[in-house]
Each structure stands twice: as structure tokens, then as C-alpha cells.
Amino acid sequence: MIKISGLNKTYDNGFEALKNVDLEIKEGEIFALLGPNGAGKTTLISTICGLVEPTSGTITIGGYDHKRDYRKARELIGLVPQEIMLDIFETVWSTMQYARGFFGKKDDPALYEQILKDLSLWDKKDNKIQALSGGMKRRVLIARALTNEPKVLFLDEPTAGVDVELRRGMLEVVKKLKERGTTIILTTHYIEEAEELADRVGIISEGEIKLVEEKESLMKRMGSKTLKINLAEKIDSLPSQIEREGLSLSDDRNSLEYSYKIGANSGITSLLSDLKSANISFEDLDTEQSSLEEIFVNLVNE
């Protein structure tokens, strides 16, 4: 759906926001772009959507070059920016009308009605934007981006500063859009969002794409699990026969923690049998899977 190759952006002040970015987004997928603040997430999205002029490199959207065939390329795109950049004196309804009009499409009240209802904004349609709460303004940003029925939707941190319930609602809308076949590119700080929604994850740091991978395989590859063993009795130190890499005794000496890579050679069986031969009995076992967040922090710190 989107092909980016050799994309560079150096701002006038010399700041290199994007360094030789190559990226491909597949049709119908949800792609989550993760990265710390200032990593280049917004610059990348803004460049694809035509707000930022790239220094070099090419972008095609649905096969259309984003500069040469900019009309056809942009017709496919809906953009939800990070900041609430709306004409606050307009009503929700006219914001929808103008948004569709800019795309050269005829007014479509039935479409606006459906979008506004999906985003629980229908009863606010005649309100001025300035009278809406922050969360509602954010939903208006999404609503107006859907008025041109985009094939690709960019969501630049759509849930930043939105309360939990509203966030749930937004995630539902995103899932619904995906079901209809919309390709979605999402940047976020909330890793659980990426974890919940994304098919693939891209990690960007200091303007470079560090990694692009299927979420599942990324979690499998990078993810480690921790086995927590609650002991029946405290022990003073680890007996030498059970000592091994990844095993540690907790500070309160009540439990053992063993971290291992998911897969065949986890070492759990041999650990448990060694515990038995060392006469250490335990009451309970518990395992924890590391989240995308930990994977992400590890990658960025590499």
C-alpha cells in the first residue's frame, strides 16, 4: 500500500529527522510505529501525508508517487494529527463538510451521520469545536479524517491525553476500520495499544528505522519469560548445584526468579529436577511474559 525508499529529511536548522528510511506498509494491516519522543515518528507521517517536503527519497501510496501523482496519492489518505489543530469557531458538522470538500468530493450527510454516530459525536454535531472537551476534539480529528473514506488512515498518537473509557472506544473504531479493509498506521507511546492492535511493529529511533517485524514473532524472538518459584521455606543463598544463568534469589529470600527465552531449551525441567535433588520444596509457580515495552526499551538502549 505504501512504499518508502531512501527517505531523508533534514530541517533548515540542520536537524536530521529522518535518515534513509525504507519502509513498506501492506494493504489492510495495522502497523504500529513506536519510538521515543523526537524519534521522527511525526516527521515520517507528515512527509507521507504531504505536510513536510522530504530532502530526498521516494514515497508511493497505492502505487502513486506522492509528489508526481499527489492528487491520486492523497485521495487515499486520511490523517489524524497529534495536536488538536482545528478551526475552533466552526461547528462539528461544517468541519466534516469542509474536510470532504477539500478532497473534491460532494457533500454526503449520510456518511457524516454514520461517522459521527460511530464516534459518539452525533449529539454534538451542531456544537462549535471550542465548546467541546479535549477528548471530543480528538474524536472530531478522527471523524474529519474519515470523511474522504480513506484507504489508509494515519493516526499520530490518537489516544494521548484521552481518558481510559474514550480510549477503549477509539480502539474499537480502529478495529472496525480494519475489518472494513482500511490500512492503519499508528504511532503511539502506549505500547499496550500496539500490542493489542498491531499486526506489525516498526521501531524508530533518532530518525532511523531500527526494526520492522510481525508483532507475534517479535514478541517470541525478543520476549523472555520469568518463572517465579515461591519457596516453602526461606533459604539463605543459592545452593551451588542449582546455580545457573538467569536464576536469582529474591531479596526477601522467599522466592526464586528464573528468566528464560521462550522455546524448546527453556531449562525449566532441569531446574525443577535440580531443586528436587537439592531438597528445596516450593509452594507455587508463576510465569510472566515480558511486554513489548520492555522489548522496545531494550532495543532503543542497544
Binding site: 501525508c49 504531504g50 489543530m85 474529519r144 474522504n148
Partner: peptide, 9 residues
């Protein structure tokens, strides 16, 4: 809000 026009065709 100029983004509305710049990201449109």
C-alpha cells in the same frame, strides 16, 4: 489547521 488543506488533494 492548514494541515487540512495540505494533506488534501
Amino acid at each position: 489547521s492548514i494541515y487540512e488543506m495540505l494533506s488534501a488533494p
